[in-house]
Design a binder for these strands. Sequence first.
DNA 1: ATTGGTGCAAAGCTTTTGCAGTAGC
DNA 2: GCTACTGCAAAAGCTTTGCACCAAT
Lengths: 153, 153
Amino acid sequence: MNGYKSEKGVGDATVTRRNTRAKTLILKCLKSLGGKHITAEELSEMLKSENTPVAKSTLYRFLAQLEQDGLVKKYFSGENASCCYRFVGEGSECNEHFHLLCRQCGEITHFENPMLEQMMKKLDGATDFSIDIHDSQFYGTCKTCMRKAKSEK
Amino acid sequence: MNGYKSEKGVGDATVTRRNTRAKTLILKCLKSLGGKHITAEELSEMLKSENTPVAKSTLYRFLAQLEQDGLVKKYFSGENASCCYRFVGEGSECNEHFHLLCRQCGEITHFENPMLEQMMKKLDGATDFSIDIHDSQFYGTCKTCMRKAKSEK
DNA sequence: ATTGGTGCAAAGCTTTTGCAGTAGC
DNA sequence: GCTACTGCAAAAGCTTTGCACCAAT
């Protein structure tokens, strides 16, 4: 229905992929982000501002393909209704962060902490579920909003 | 823009709230779920099947109100484009679970483990961010999909 | 020459909004 | 009686899809 459930595994070779202008440009942008996420809209604007525009449909189609291939991870941020994409293939060294999502202001904070990694490994054993901490997002309240809430009391 | 950022705090009394048929029905449904989440669509169907239909617009408006009041938490599941809502006000005793979201099949598993609670408390100190574990979602791969992936190799 | 990829426009979905009528308080 | 609430329909916003043309292999 939405192409999210892939029947083709990572590296499946039943479909020949071609190298094209649009794909090269999109990948270049994604890689330049150093592991940070971006929305489809932002990516589209980025390409436009570099005078190398790509149609939205092409963008979405290629992102879905990349997700299928395991080179891109798709998120749901929560603040608005749009998704975030993040490049995780080779060349992306910044995989060691995860996302804190503030319920009050909607801000996404990036956080890096090896401790969490260890925690998740423990959890894996307890859950029969292989948790990918880099894909996970945590809801909560950020420092600024906590201060604001306190001062309003 | 989307009503997500509320300017009214929890328990703000600047607006008089009225008790109505629709509100009572919606709350009854939410409470009957015992802390499990539900989509707007499912909630609408639930009300319809009980011969007490409520307009979608009313549903969304009241859910937004409840979220503002802190009685309902809103999620973004990932499998489809729709949001999940969960009642967390009084009468909801089943708050002690969190969500494991399988990237392969999109299934949401509910998991309960006090250990995680302790972990998150530790994290709070490290992050300047008050994490609400009950709101957080973990991405990963579920048992079934892991088995499937193995057998396909 | 095949057939995957592209761009455009249209359609699909979920969610929000405008508005006139209804019903709590 | 005031005004919050409701339902309907329309609009909005993000994403997907159909289709004809283009271009990589």
